[in-house]
Simulated scan of single mutants.
Amino acid sequence: MIKLNPKKSLLIVLSLLLITLVLYFPKIYLINNIYYVSKDINKMYSHYISLKEENKFLAQQLEDMKFKNQIEDSLIIYSIEGNYGTKSN
């Protein structure tokens, strides 16, 4: 049987603490790393969603401008043709 004195007890406790830290440090590191990567992914995903919505909004504005430009062009062409048509008669 081992006789424990304060020095041996302290040595055993410190060695167990060291072994525990060596075994659990990689796990703790990986969990923290996964947490921060997940946090970054969520931040980027929310930014992606907002950019996607902004893209839809801008595409709709572009479509409205194209439609408005097409209408104005047809009205200008119609008025030009109308002016030439009345002068030639």
Results as ranks from 00 to 15, higher is better:
36 Y>W: 02
17 L>T: 13
3 K>N: 13
63 E>Y: 09
52 K>T: 12
62 L>M: 10
76 I>Q: 04
59 A>V: 08
60 Q>I: 00
16 L>T: 14
63 E>P: 02
60 Q>D: 15
22 V>W: 01
60 Q>L: 06
71 I>H: 03
62 L>D: 06
47 H>G: 05
48 Y>C: 04
28 I>N: 01
5 N>A: 08
39 K>M: 03
45 Y>A: 07
36 Y>D: 03
11 L>F: 11
14 L>E: 09
13 V>M: 11
62 L>Q: 11
84 Y>A: 06
47 H>D: 13
80 I>L: 14
48 Y>E: 12
63 E>S: 15
61 Q>A: 01
61 Q>Y: 03
1 M>F: 13
25 F>M: 14
60 Q>H: 11
86 T>V: 12
70 Q>D: 07
2 I>R: 10
22 V>R: 02
68 K>Q: 12
2 I>K: 14
57 F>E: 06
51 L>S: 13
83 N>G: 04
14 L>F: 15
42 N>Q: 13
52 K>V: 10
15 S>L: 15
43 K>M: 09
31 I>S: 07
23 L>R: 05
68 K>H: 06
54 E>S: 07
37 V>A: 12
22 V>C: 07
4 L>P: 01
61 Q>G: 03
41 I>A: 03
89 N>C: 03
66 K>Q: 13
48 Y>A: 05
25 F>Y: 14
82 G>R: 15
82 G>V: 00
19 I>S: 11
39 K>N: 04
56 K>F: 10
16 L>W: 00
54 E>H: 10
70 Q>M: 07
88 S>R: 08
38 S>Y: 01
15 S>D: 08
39 K>P: 01
20 T>Q: 06
